[in-house]
Design a protein around this nucleic acid. Structure first.
Lengths: 141, 141
DNA sequence: TACTTGGCGTAGCCATTGCTATATTTCCCC
DNA sequence: GGGGAAATATAGCAATGGCTACGCCAAGTA
């Protein structure tokens, strides 16, 4: 199984490849706010665990296993961002919160959150009513 | 600042004292599913950081700082349990998921989840409708 | 082709937090 | 009050995942 840290890297790598076609050590490092040496180390681990194939100084490609995982991780990340946005969390807090919790939810929870989002999507009034509750609670204090 | 691990211990200790009046090493260890030796070590750290006062072999008491922190942590834990329950997460997954995410949410997110819970509490139909969405989505697959 | 430079890799350190094995203390019962 | 079991403490090891310092590769330029 992948550790939370490994998931962070894998997700980042998948996203970079998805957007730019390749993932360089320095881009990964910048995105995750770690030093390049930490990236190299982790890439070697991900190679060893067959998430990607890595050639020193040359670059890396994701294996099918890595791609599948990466996509799931990215989708999950987006889902959680949407969720927090929907319930009214301030933009500035969203990225960090998602980053923190995404590795710690069972797929059961993820599915339930997906359902919850769909619930709000199906009838925009529901989100409005949620915001009304918010205003009422705020007015009380 | 307290690390996630420190928060886990502090929360557990607060809860034990709240429920039984005292917190023994072995009870803490059992609750957190770690070995007693790990508990001793962490208690010493929490003492050093002034969350509690610890007397070897004798026991511990929370400082005002520790009590305040502990209460907040326990409240947050309960809120998140209620949240996952409400959206339909299976009982077996709840504890572990909450354990995982509770240390990683901003107070902004916590407040929004509180509001969401209040939203569902105010009109039980809403939870019913959520379950209907769930059934429909399940039927599709 | 040779040099420079920036990107990348390696080695080795540190903190955190768990573990096992082994001491030490306390408590209870006789 | 003494002895043994249970509880607790300590020492030392391991994995994880950062960091710094330093060495190596390779692309571009002269």
């Amino acid at each position: 199984m992948a550790t939370p840290s490994m998931e962070d890297y894998l997700e980042r790598i998948y996203k970079l490849i998805d957007e730019k076609g390749y993932a360089r050590v320095s881009d990964i490092a910048e995105g995750l706010e770690v030093h390049p040496s930490s990236v190299t180390k982790m890439i070697q681990k991900l190679d060893k665990d067959n998430y990607l194939i890595y050639e020193k100084y040359r670059g890396l490609i994701l294996t099918p296993k890595g791609k599948k995982m990466g996509k799931r991780l990215m989708d999950r990340h987006e889902l959680l961002e949407n969720f927090l946005t929907t319930i009214g969390v301030h933009e500035d807090n969203i990225y960090k919160d998602v980053e923190g919790i995404e590795h710690h939810l069972s797929w059961d929870s993820i599915t339930c959150i997906e359902t919850l989002l769909e619930y709000f999507r199906r009838d925009p009034n529901r989100a409005d009513e949620l915001m009304n509750v918010r205003k009422e609670l705020e007015a009380e204090n």
